[in-house]
Structures are given as C-alpha cells and as structure tokens.
C-alpha cells in the first residue's frame, strides 16, 4: 500500500488530496504514520517505531495500524493498484 504522491501533509495535521479536492484532518500520531508511509517506509518498520516510541502494546499497534491504513484506502488516499 502506497500513499499517493501528490497528497499534501501539513504540520497542523491537514491532509489535502489535490486530485479529488478532499481535505482531512489527522491527529499527531496519524500524521507521523502518514509521513512514514509517504516516504515508503515498510509497514513493519513503522509499527516497530510506534511500539518503541509509545507506551502501548503490539496488539494495539497491529490493530490500529491496520484500521488506519484501511481508512486511508477507503478515503482514496492510496495508490489504487498497489496492494
């Protein structure tokens, strides 16, 4: 799963999709994940990073990361053909 290249992310958590005109807001951890996805970091590495930096557990990270990326797909922020 890849984030579309033209998606604009700002420090305030504002996400803009120039090809659809949709805009979104993300919380800081969501922004962090989006940035890493945009830099094509492997998912496992992102999850590892979350687990290392936040007081949480692997199950929560796994579940929430899956849910978040599913939402990104549903909101059409990802490359359609990449799976």
């Amino acid at each position: 799963m890849k984030i579309k290249k033209n998606i604009a992310l700002s420090d305030t958590g504002f996400v803009f999709n120039p090809s659809t005109g949709d805009s979104f807001s993300v919380n800081p951890i969501g922004l962090e994940i989006l940035r890493k996805l945009k830099d094509n970091e492997p998912h496992e590495k992102i999850k590892k990073h979350l687990l290392d930096s936040y007081s949480t557990d692997a199950d929560s990270v796994e579940k929430d990361f899956y849910d978040f990326t599913k939402m990104l797909e549903q909101l059409q922020l990802t490359e359609a053909d990449a799976k």
């Binding site: 949709d22 805009s23 919380n27 951890i29 978040f68 990104l72």
Partner: peptide, 19 residues
C-alpha cells in the same frame, strides 16, 4: 522514552459540522 499512545485518526473535514 515513551510517548502517550493514542490511536491514529483520520477524518474527512466535513463542512457544516463543527468538530
């Protein structure tokens, strides 16, 4: 060392709805 964890959230900015 460990930041407080919060589930990642993304929401469409709906006009007409204060969030």
């Amino acid at each position: 060392k460990k930041l407080q964890y919060e589930r990642p959230l993304i929401q469409r900015l709906n006009t007409g709805l204060m969030n």
